[in-house]
Nucleic acid binder design. Sequence first.
DNA 1: TCAATCAATAGCCAACGGGTTATTGATTGG
DNA 2: CCAATCAATAACCCGTTGGCTATTGATTGA
Lengths: 107, 107
Amino acid sequence: MTAAHDMLFRTLADPTRRAIFERLCRQGEQTVGALTAEAGVSQPAVSKHLGLLKEAGLVRDRHEGRQTHYSAQLGALAPLMDWTREMAGFWESRFDDLEDLLKRMDQ
Amino acid sequence: MTAAHDMLFRTLADPTRRAIFERLCRQGEQTVGALTAEAGVSQPAVSKHLGLLKEAGLVRDRHEGRQTHYSAQLGALAPLMDWTREMAGFWESRFDDLEDLLKRMDQ
DNA sequence: TCAATCAATAGCCAACGGGTTATTGATTGG
DNA sequence: CCAATCAATAACCCGTTGGCTATTGATTGA
């Protein structure tokens, strides 16, 4: 439960890694070479990041000859959206409670 | 721009720290002592986490006598929601492009 | 006033994470 | 078939981070 959030937050916390993911979101499927050209770090570093993104379910890979194509898996962001909404929800419900209280005090 | 996302993701990536924030969301304002009782780590550790959460704008503190009360600042989650939505948006727009392409090919 | 309580800070340490270069494995083109 | 290209893995380094204990500062209650 919280372990999934862990992986998501931790995976997206690194700027280099998040930039790779963003690029895949914006521009669709990319090869490791193409990603490396823009990443500002070495190819092994990019591969490592892609490995972690894949473990987190944020990307898919597709092998074609000697190159590997990666693409974003947007569905993996759902738990993150849910979590954020949940936190906001708690806040609102506490606010509603306060409103109720004030209303009752008003009478 | 991305620096704000950095701070948010990085701050929420640690499970102990995120648990503290979740607790503040669920149950509202809490003292450091109350948070420490549940956190499973020492009071200094909790204080350090609260310091980082505060730096990230995720919590506010209020001093009352010798105790400090912390509360969640939900507004700080907005960039996170926006980012997630943006990523999802890129995905959809690429999907729309594909649909358009297929439609045009169909004619 | 003095002891006790609460939270923050200091100082330290071990583990982890992200980077590098070097290498391997697999695939392709000449 | 051999050289070159692409991506993954190995081995290592170093900075960061999260934890701890000890201490300090401030506030309270007796």
